[in-house]
Design a protein around this nucleic acid. Sequence first.
DNA 1: GGTTGCCTGCCTATGTATAGGTAGGTATGG
DNA 2: CCATACCTACCTATACATAGGCAGGCAACC
Lengths: 191, 191
Amino acid sequence: MATKTTKDRLLDEAELLCQTRGFNAFSFKALAEALEIKTASVHYHFPTKADLGLALVQRYRERFESQVARVSSGRSSRDRIASYVDIFARLARSHRLCLCGSLAGDFATLSDEVQGEVRDYFAASEAWLEGVLEAGRTAGEVSFQGEARATSRVLIGMLEGTMLSARASGSPNRLRDTKRWILDFLAVPTP
Amino acid sequence: MATKTTKDRLLDEAELLCQTRGFNAFSFKALAEALEIKTASVHYHFPTKADLGLALVQRYRERFESQVARVSSGRSSRDRIASYVDIFARLARSHRLCLCGSLAGDFATLSDEVQGEVRDYFAASEAWLEGVLEAGRTAGEVSFQGEARATSRVLIGMLEGTMLSARASGSPNRLRDTKRWILDFLAVPTP
DNA sequence: GGTTGCCTGCCTATGTATAGGTAGGTATGG
DNA sequence: CCATACCTACCTATACATAGGCAGGCAACC
């Protein structure tokens, strides 16, 4: 495989900084210094910061979707959900937020296009989890009350939110507890 | 009552901007313009932005604690929790995040003192809710499995997180659904 | 096979606006 | 007199961005 292009390295660094510090807390200068190039060269690859943000969220969503697709193949609904939560747990352990969760915090300062991508990220995630929950309930693999959509939404909120509080509490491993709680919550009662 | 001091008006404006845009997305200039004074006058009240951040989070926590104290008086655990969730629902409806949730997103960029306050906010909230859950379970007013501390943490994460996704989805009223879900979740099964 | 010409990726240099902060002065009122 | 609360004026650093140049690759063409 070819070594990474500068563009990809810029996106890697921007993603790290956005997830650890926030979109408004890193600059083209910070990116340039990390790659040991000049800020003008960063502008060559991404004319404006809005362009960078858009590329960032699009790449993130693509990778996220492909992770979710891998999670979706084959196994039980319960396993899918466990693996899905693991995606977030891994992020938290490396002291990162979900990129779109981080961007949601800065939502009002984002370009319309980036706002749209973040909105779509949540809609897509909620729809995916809703599907898994509904299918799992039909198959008797998971149990919960009420509409799958409502549970899907609160569980995704829970993941985004516990990443926040885990960070503030200096407990990057706390998502393990969230995972256990969710799996217990969804457990089918043994009669 | 006396008309508000400039200091309080500055804190009001900073709180609004922090909750709607993020701590790193507003400036002394923005505060000064909102109050129609000069930036140097803002520095008179808050020498540095870290000082402002500290005053902001301390005042927020005080008010939050007093709201929680009001919620805590008298009624059932279930009612307390419902009223507690309403605090967040009101914020979301006015297009604001929880201040400490917002600050948690920018956590790495905050001064040590502000980080400490944010950490303490989460610890205090989790402890309070844990107590209400535990007492409620003992009194037979609410029902849930496992440790109260674990449920307390995930529910607070859920509140913080659904505020984020509600904003990104353009659905500031969605916290109503979160409230309903939580109350259903805690409902004591009727035999 | 040299030369022409374009493309990529980086550079220097520069510009405008903002961010956070400081020094020192002034008006007002107990 | 002195504290409060505001001001003018200024500073340095940064943020984002643009213009224009240059080196190397590579492909076409005679």
